[in-house]
């Protein structure tokens, strides 16, 4: 199973991929409306907001965790 290079989510079904395109290495949640991959700042912001919304964690603590996770993903190695 392919893993999204930008957020680490496993991509099982066609609709998990950006624009439903299984040749893409990133998922629908990491794509912009035009299908291109979000940049680092957009992804960091999105991931932080998601953690705050779903786990109720403090904004800065959530951003810190998101930053820590992104450091390990292939898309953000440079």
């Amino acid at each position: 199973m392919k893993i999204c290079i930008a957020c680490g989510m496993p991509m099982k079904a066609k609709e998990d991929f950006a624009m439903g395109d299984e040749s893409k290495d990133y998922c629908k949640y990491c794509a912009r409306p035009d299908g291109t991959m979000q940049n680092y700042d957009e992804k960091l912001e999105g991931m932080t907001e998601f953690i705050v919304k779903t786990q109720g964690i403090d904004q800065e603590a959530a951003r810190n965790a998101a930053r820590g996770m992104m450091e390990k993903l292939p898309a953000w190695q440079n």
């Binding site: 680490g8 989510m9 991931m47 998601f50 953690i51 779903t54 786990q55 964690i57 959530a62 810190n64 965790a65 820590g68 996770m69």
Partner: peptide, 13 residues
């Protein structure tokens, strides 16, 4: 600790 937050993030999704 961050790795655990990320696990919970996937579950909560």
């Amino acid at each position: 600790r961050n790795a655990l937050i990320m696990i919970q993030s996937a579950i909560s999704h």
